[in-house]
Amino acid sequence: MPSATGLPQRRELTTKPRFSDKVFRGIVTTGGLSSLLLLGLIFAFLAYQGFSILKMEKFSFITGSQWQVVLNDSGAIDKANTAFGIAPMLVGTILCAIIALVVAVPVSVLAALFLTFYAPPALKRFLVAIIDLMAAFPSILFGLWGFFILMPSAEYWAKLLHKYFGWFPAFKMEVPIFTRSPFVAGVVLAIMVIPIVTSISREVFAQTPLDRVQAAYALGASRWSMIRAVVLPYGRSGVVGGAMLGLGRAMGETVAVYTVLNIVYQVNWHVLVGAGGSVASMILLKFGEAGAQEVKALMAAGLVLFLLTLIVNSIANAIVAKSGGKGR
């Protein structure tokens, strides 16, 4: 309705999104789906490249402990003698990651308790900053430091462990080689996952309801009895989740493990002996001189590693998200 007085035309009121909004939502949704797309593509391509090997080996790709490529005269793969099995490396990965957690989790929980309930504010700010910084250290730095600085000490600790706890099956040694053992790799990994476990535990502990904390103090609890009665029950599941996130990180670590671990293709449960394995490091080690078929097998190993870390991380995230709300 055009008007002579120059009033603007009456606007049509609607709840429908404008064209610009539709475009905006479309673009953002597409961008948001990128993570789905990328994860899907990673799975699809690794599975595609590794399919022929997985089909040939079936389940023995995970359970077998042989890794050898034999080509017949025409240069094709000789199926009778070729074997790809990653069991030793898988065992090594899990072993190193478990050692890492056994070392890292208690220490991290203590540190998180210190940061949340004991440290004066200024000290707390400083310590939180350097722990966050440590999480950003490049993995090759941990590798070099682990090799040159930590290894001599870790070897000495390993000797002590062997001397005093040698009756424990995992600490047995047939050959006294203490360098580059899964134990050393596990300690390096522990130092790498400490920042993750510490910061998650700290966040969970900081969420402890203040009324329960103060109720405990009002009932005459000392700081430690308060922590035991309120904080630990409340934060337990969060700590478990943080530990599993650390487990995922430890399993996927490549370069740091590669520098400190002596990779031997053999199932080895004796953590102090200088022979171990890790799927990620094995991929790096074998990649250099791998032929076409072996690269496909490495892709299949990558797929196994990808799925393993994906499962561990998903469980961890679910636990962390659900944590809190419980406790006495």
């Binding site: 993570s35 996130l245 996927g252 990620a280 990558g302 990808f306 870390t309 991380n313």
Partner: peptide, 20 residues
């Protein structure tokens, strides 16, 4: 959920993916 899962992808797997 997927973004969190993706942040746990081992770096070597990212390399293998681009490779493949």
């Amino acid at each position: 959920f997927l973004v969190q899962a993706m942040s746990g992808v081992p770096s070597i797997v990212a390399g293998l993916f681009i490779l493949s």
